[in-house]
């Protein structure tokens, strides 16, 4: 993925497949801590603990007929390459929160890209879903 906005499209696709109706995207830039944090929070079906543990394995997917699931594993790799990490919290029936952290100044950190445009596209193509985007600078 060339930038974070493309990663967001991939992760949101998981939320949509989990029948989320409210998807929150938060981008927090903290220059003092040299940290960039991306959070994607949905109210979808959530995952069992077993599925959550497998979700970063690129050879694991919940999609029928597919062998490979790359969305989360690509984002995890991007975070790790920029001195960060990816964490997933999920509760069956409640939803999922994906948190990707990056070192803000890391030379290999992917650019943010045009998230506003990404969110506009998502809203236009999924009018039945509520998307919230917030960008914070600490």
């Amino acid at each position: 993925m060339e930038d974070l906005s493309l990663h967001i499209l991939d992760i949101v696709e998981n939320s949509l497949r989990a029948n989320a109706k409210h998807i929150e995207i938060k981008l927090i830039q903290d220059e003092k801590k040299d940290r960039l944090t991306l959070e994607i929070i949905d109210d979808g079906e959530g995952m069992s603990e077993e599925t959550r543990k497998q979700s970063l394995n690129p050879f694991f997917t919940t999609r029928e007929g597919k062998k490979i699931g790359l969305g989360l594993s690509f984002l995890a790799q991007s975070a790790e390459e920029a001195g960060g990490k990816l964490e997933i919290e999920s509760m069956k029936g409640k939803g999922t929160k994906v948190t990707a952290e990056f070192t803000l100044s890391h030379i290999d950190r992917k650019p943010i890209g045009n998230i506003e445009e990404t969110v506009r596209c998502l809203k236009a193509t999924h009018p039945d879903v509520c998307f919230d985007f917030e960008s914070l600078n600490n």
Binding site: F59, L70, S73
Partner: peptide
Amino acid sequence: THLNIIAVASS
């Protein structure tokens, strides 16, 4: 060198 390269190559 990440595991993801095997998923890409396999795909």
